[in-house]
Design a protein around this nucleic acid. Structure first.
Lengths: 332, 332
DNA sequence: CTGAAAGCGCTTACAG
DNA sequence: CTGAAAGCGCTTACAG
């Protein structure tokens, strides 16, 4: 420990470096040590420090599909809640891949103060039983035991089905995400069930799905559209706004007018959705709030405090815009 | 070390766990120890291991503006090159913020095997003198000393200026990014200089800049457009494709026809750019290749190998699409 | 082939 | 107020 050389002491440097000097070190030496630290550009080795104390002050967030803009907002919320107490490190999977159990285990071996896992598969949640603080985000279906913060996607999906039914749609289709995250399975199921209940016929084949990027979504939609069109589809609901942009794009290219010939909608309410042409009807999902709530919960767990309340469910909200606006058929 | 209890040894467990058993441990004990490891779900504590060996096997990538889709592709390239030898951890700044020296120092305190810094400010590069392996990405202006992998944005920016001049444009404007990354400063300077050289008049006030998201870009463009229009601007070059999407959007809303009344272009060639309406002229930047080259260089540095070649400069390429296509004025 | 021992750089009671 | 010492969980020469 070089700093000790500079002045004359050893454990004292540790005290000074960590600011635990309240009446344990004289003002003189504090200054002298700080000087030495500054001179030598000394930075405490967190690895050693973490080993010695058995604790750390960083949090790892595991997430799939970082290219989803929704995700950037979740991160912003997490950082907000973490403040300066904990540093955030991200671990991302390849596009379209889910985080695997083994890689989460490896991450745990870094001994973070806590772990945040976004959009896990149901399987991951079940098999991941550890005593480290861990919180799942956007993980519907987590058994009650696992701490999780969820989005109320069901309410939004149902509102969307009702909205389309009211607009007179009869035959609807769904463009899904390929990732196995349970949130996507839930969105789809909730929408299809409610659609059925409202008297609409959801077309389930061909099944359409793509990764969360505009290009893939466009390609996929272009592939299935002929069949859907023959089946009489007048509305397509997409797993995310990003998928919907792809649909809007292809529809435009093909001369399919939105919303007159085809209603389009998504989930997320990304900023662009208010400005696309036509503007996009979507289920608003409070990404930032989700991130904040998850991080708050994690910090409570880390610090051994009981979470303030029960399992939070962030409300979703249907935002009706032009992409589903103009369709009128029979009644409505 | 619990595993030692399960069988009967101590250092042997370490040998087995790290697979260094070539004729140092009998097949029998290897199996016995592996059994114990499996039974106890034992995972080597990387913190302790890292302290003992003085090395680690993870790399930290520091980056601003994770919401930029360009970035997701850079990451994909980095992961490709890192393979399974090194794990990747990300540290992101808040939107529009640059990585700060202090936070990079804190990251170094985790003792990663190496550090990758994307789009650093010139100041960061200068003040960051450390002996840990570190590679800058997309960091034009790095003094020759610092290992860096760059994009040849100058060539692309100049080709764009020439293209617009050939199309007959006389008065052009630039929509910049707010981040202080040197790559953005360079794109702008290179374009403006070449524009001047080609006999065009770049309008420099009002200066337009926004964060890298469609919404902010749209707002900013809406604000400056009246002045630009009065000044006779017929072409706007954007720092990224994302900015250009915002411009396209607002132009559409305002009834400004692209490219007839206004030519629009960007940098990146994001997947969506081929499919927007009109499709977007852009300077293709090889994001994935950039990530791969940077990671390759970093690994070479970590492993003490001399880098294969000189400082790599990834080529950029002008892709001409409809958003600048139709404008004809005088000659051309 | 296997175990005992030292050491990685810190932190934290514990004596002085 | 300050220093000496033990210990965090590993790894790596070094003896047996």
């Amino acid at each position: 420990m070089v700093a000790s050389r500079a002045s004359v002491s050893v454990a004292t440097v540790s005290l000074v470096a960590s600011g635990k000097t309240d009446g344990r070190v004289s003002a003189d030496t504090v200054i002298r040590v700080q000087q030495a630290i500054a001179d030598l550009h000394y930075v405490v080795n967190r690895v050693a420090s973490s080993l010695a104390t058995g604790s750390s002050n960083f949090v790892i967030l595991v997430a799939p599909d970082i290219s989803n803009p929704f995700f950037a907002r979740v991160i912003a919320g997490v950082r907000e809640a973490l403040g300066s107490s904990y540093q955030l490190l991200l671990s991302v999977t390849d596009s379209g891949q889910m985080p695997q159990l083994e890689s989460v285990r490896e991450l745990l071996a870094f001994r973070p103060a806590g772990l945040l896992v976004d959009a896990p598969s149901a399987r991951l949640m079940q098999s991941l039983v550890v005593d480290e603080p861990i919180v799942f985000l956007d993980a519907p279906g987590a058994d009650a035991g696992a701490p999780a913060v969820n989005l109320d996607v069901v309410r939004g999906a149902e509102a969307l089905a009702v909205h389309l039914a009211e607009r007179g749609h009869r035959t609807v289709a769904y463009l899904d995400s390929v990732t196995a995250a349970s949130t996507f399975a839930l969105r789809r199921r909730a929408f299809l069930a409610k659609a059925q209940e409202c008297g609409m016929s959801p077309i389930e084949t061909p099944r359409a799905r793509s990764t969360i990027d505009v290009g893939s979504a466009a390609t996929e939609f272009a592939k299935v559209w002929p069949a859907w069109q023959r089946a009489g589809v007048t509305a397509v609901v997409c797993a995310t706004d990003t998928h919907a942009y792809g649909v809007l794009q292809v529809a435009h290219s093909l001369g399919v007018r939105v919303p007159e010939q085809l209603a389009v909608s998504g989930f997320d309410d990304l900023p662009f959705s208010a400005m696309s042409h036509p503007s996009l009807t979507t289920v608003e999902l409070p990404a930032r709030k989700l991130g904040r709530a998850a991080a708050d919960l994690l910090v409570a767990l880390i610090e051994g405090r009981a979470p303030d309340s029960g399992p939070p469910l962030m409300p979703s909200r249907l935002i009706i815009r032009d992409s589903t606006g103009g369709f009128v058929n029979g009644a409505a």
